[in-house]
């Protein structure tokens, strides 16, 4: 079992490493990730949103819909925990109610 798991992990890791081989090097300023979408954020975020913190501008404005989703995730988790763990108060004695 453990050997099988290890072989599977090595395959997964190998595949990930195979993908990495074609990556641009780490922290290369000319990598596509840093040249396609993000320069516009750095250049235009302040004039569009008047927020010096670019991460905040992108989080709350450009990708605000994602952030809404993020809040909903927390809400979902909260409701889920209430659904699963909340017990009737009767179990602990009625005088609490």
């Amino acid at each position: 079992m453990k050997v099988f798991v290890l072989i599977m992990l090595l395959m997964t890791g190998g595949l990930l490493a195979y993908g990495v081989k074609d990556f641009p090097g780490w922290s290369n300023p000319n990598a596509p990730a840093s040249t396609h979408v993000s320069p516009r954020y750095i250049q235009a975020a302040y004039t569009k949103t008047h927020t010096p913190n670019i991460v905040t501008a992108v989080l709350a404005d450009y990708r605000g819909y994602d952030t809404l989703g993020e809040t909903v995730v927390i809400f979902t988790a909260g409701m889920g925990v209430i659904l699963m763990l909340r017990k009737k108060r009767r179990n602990k004695g009625k005088d609490n109610v």
Binding site: A33, I42, Q43, V73
Partner: peptide, 23 residues
């Protein structure tokens, strides 16, 4: 743009961290 790091991964990971905590 060369003066500042790429903000987008940070934004994405703020969301992903929250998702991870919720899970």
């Amino acid at each position: 743009p060369l003066q500042y790091m790429n903000p987008l991964p940070h934004v994405l990971m703020l969301t992903a961290i929250v998702v991870g905590i919720a899970t």
